[in-house]
Design a protein around this nucleic acid. Structure first.
Lengths: 206, 206
DNA sequence: GACCTTCTTGCGTGACACGCATATTTGCGC
DNA sequence: GCGCAAATATGCGTGTCACGCAAGAAGGTC
């Protein structure tokens, strides 16, 4: 039941998050006032804080949404698929670039990437992104518990798995961003990271 | 070369961090003003922001210091010790309770624990703590790279190991805090978590 | 003991998060 | 259609907060 109410709410939220990211990537974190974001989203400044409790939270909101989808994706993998294969696939699903990214005009693409980089360097943002990651991790742990028939309350197992999977994605992303061009394809990095983790990260031969 | 200057600086920093934690655990996060913390540490409000760029950062500072010590501890483990044993030991080292904790009067011990719990629930704090964890993780990754002869720039391995080890500690801590009394001993939880991670977190038999 | 560096402090400013009261919009039963 | 109750948007006021700047105090060096 997707009432008009819910849809509008979701739209406003998305608009605010999107505007926050764009403005920040363009001008830098503290050259963007909440007022600007609200205006760009066509909403009053006061309303901004009905959706997000801080500027940082707004900017991290898309990261949160994306991260949360991994748990949902895991739940939809076939039940007989081996756990770590399912996890890797669920993670990979989140990295197929959507149409809104593909459609982005590439003239200022370099500027955009640079903007995102400095944005991610902002301390206030890092905390908020990590918080989002942690929240998604909890959700993922619940999904893992269901799938493996373990108990969140008594077993560390599901949380460990969720944390390890999350770490694999984060590290892969980090390598992707750090690597000079041409960057290694993100899919390969993620797959590789999951393989290593599932193997217990044995010390490499010297 | 421990000049008076450095010592005083370290003392002020510690006093501020300590005061921030105590006051917050007692009164709750937003019943503590920066002014109060500064006063408790015997320093002007303005000086507070010379040491920390936010109230949250001050509260998380001890967590940061502690987390950073894990990397240092790893560097001091014998070089011929297997990696995962060394990691587990380095982590365990950080959980031997110091004298200042042991000396704490236990009458209001329950109040203290409750205070800490609500403190950790504060969103603004969570982000800052996670940021500290991430920073320590980077340090740990460097130490792992040294020890294993891998390259931070080209191999995901050291970062994956650091992230997995960090996750093991975090999950163990989480279980420790969530578990009803009598809590399982933290040492066992940590050891257990590391064992599982090093085994590749295989799916449990149903 | 003079000099330079580093740290502390007070003041002022712009921004922010949020409580509260009011106006507006939406959904729903009739 | 119609009107009412709930949800949402907005405007205003307030208490903090982070930090730039400049002057003063203390530490370290020769």
């Amino acid at each position: 039941m997707t009432g008009l109410r819910e849809r509008k709410k979701a739209e406003t939220r998305a608009a605010l998050g999107w505007a926050a990211i764009h403005l920040t990537a363009e001008r830098g974190y503290d050259n963007v006032r909440v007022e600007d974001i609200a205006e760009a989203a066509g909403v009053s400044p006061r309303t901004f804080n009905n959706y997000f409790s801080s500027k940082a939270e707004a900017i991290a909101s898309r990261h949160l949404d994306r991260s949360l989808r991994t748990a949902a994706a895991l739940r939809e993998r076939p039940a007989d698929e081996p756990l770590w294969v399912a996890l890797a696939q669920a993670a990979l699903d989140q990295f197929t670039r959507g149409p809104e990214v593909e459609a982005m005009p590439s003239p200022d693409h370099a500027r955009w990437v640079a903007g995102v980089r400095t944005m991610l360097a902002e301390p206030a943002l890092q905390g908020e992104r990590l918080r989002a990651t942690a929240l998604a991790e909890a959700e993922l742990a619940a999904a893992v518990a269901e799938r493996t028939g373990t108990d969140l309350a008594t077993d560390m197992y599901p949380r460990l798995v969720a944390a390890a999977a999350s770490a694999a994605v984060v590290v892969a992303m980090q390598h992707y961003l750090d690597s000079a061009d041409p960057p290694a394809p993100i899919e390969r990095l993620i797959t590789d990271a999951f393989t290593q983790v599932a193997a217990g990260l044995p010390a490499p031969p010297r």
